[in-house]
């Protein structure tokens, strides 16, 4: 049988501000993931805009996984991160200093 794979759009046109998080996504079946972040509207995005990967056992209590992505400051800019051994739940937390905002797309591509 082919390895299961699934892409979930975890932010579909959302206005991120500092501290914005994506909804918890369960992925305990997956061994690996690629997270992509694409800027749909650049808003006031600038240097220092990041998205941090977080993991959780229960979807309620989160710890930083250690991976961070730069949030692209130009429209249609894309950044990505490869993940493995992440356990159960995944999400992104935005760090947007200086009251930055951006209209964002984020996808989680999982593979067993």
């Amino acid at each position: 049988m082919l390895a299961e794979s699934y892409t979930a759009v975890i932010a579909r046109g959302e206005d991120w501000v500092d501290g914005s998080t994506t909804e918890p996504y369960e992925a305990s079946w997956a061994r690996e993931a690629i997270i992509m972040v694409r800027t749909l509207e650049a808003g006031t995005l600038g240097a220092g805009a990041k998205a941090h990967v977080q993991i959780s056992l229960d979807g309620m209590r989160w710890v930083d996984e250690g991976t961070s992505l730069a949030i692209p400051t130009e429209v249609d800019g894309v950044s990505m991160a490869r993940l493995g051994h992440f356990g159960h739940y995944l999400r992104l937390r935005a760090e947007l200093p200086d009251s930055m905002t951006g209209f964002m797309l984020a996808t989680l591509s999982l593979k067993a």
């Binding site: 979930a8 909804e23 996504y25 369960e26 079946w29 056992l57």
Partner: peptide, 12 residues
Amino acid sequence: FTPPMLSNLTQW
């Protein structure tokens, strides 16, 4: 709306 997922119903 949010994407569906596969869950093994893990509880804290």
